[in-house]
Design a protein around this nucleic acid. Sequence first.
DNA 1: TGACAAAAGGCAGATATCTTCCTATTCTTC
DNA 2: GAAGAATAGGAAGATATCTGCCTTTTGTCA
Lengths: 120, 120
Amino acid sequence: MRRKKGTLLPLEVSILQCGIDLAVRGAPLFHGFLIAKEIRDREDAKLLTAHGTLYKALDRLQKSGLLESDWEDPLVAAQEGRPRRRFYHVTAAGKAALVKSLEAVPAQASQRRIPGMAAL
Amino acid sequence: MRRKKGTLLPLEVSILQCGIDLAVRGAPLFHGFLIAKEIRDREDAKLLTAHGTLYKALDRLQKSGLLESDWEDPLVAAQEGRPRRRFYHVTAAGKAALVKSLEAVPAQASQRRIPGMAAL
DNA sequence: TGACAAAAGGCAGATATCTTCCTATTCTTC
DNA sequence: GAAGAATAGGAAGATATCTGCCTTTTGTCA
């Protein structure tokens, strides 16, 4: 889609919002599937159809430094009998980019103020 | 389907055959996906449509002692970046049951003599 | 022989991540 | 303003196992 540099796509905004939201609620680490569920439960459901889209967005955010990730301990995943998760967390740059993006277009429903935004 | 006791279903015969086949070829341990591929590549392709069916059959064979299984080391799976495998191997009882089953209906295509059968 | 019960098969989906290929959209440059 | 390039989105499938629900088949018993 060739975006303007320094811009966040709606899906990326949603990811960062969810990540910060979860951090405020005491869970600073999130994985792809969790975010997928969170987004599905919000009003931005339409933003996420295919999972591939989400993982690509996570990759992008990571490459641009707005997210960082670590793989879950394989033993924990094994113990719980499921595939390994990749845990992401929003970086300081991620928070800044989100704030900037929200300021740029403040009146849009999908980019409204979020709980815990004061903490940014 | 309510089968006669001591009988093997075509899918179960295929699993045991594949398992022994692989063992003869030097790979005594197999996992569900591998068997699925093997069966797909054989003429018994129609025996396996859904994966759930295969895993149920593997469970049955294990419960009746014809197969045994061990989970792959989670660290190995993690290193190779894929979900953990469950490795099965055909037990002596499994070999015996297969031989008995092949003797019972010797002229059927899906239950023909297999390479390495002399080793049973 | 007919009815019932038991078990197998199929479909779908959960769990989790990632890749490839194609399409659609947007930005930039001329 | 139009053309071209870049990139996001969507569909599908690979990797691996397992569960639940419903349908179909088959053996057994009356």
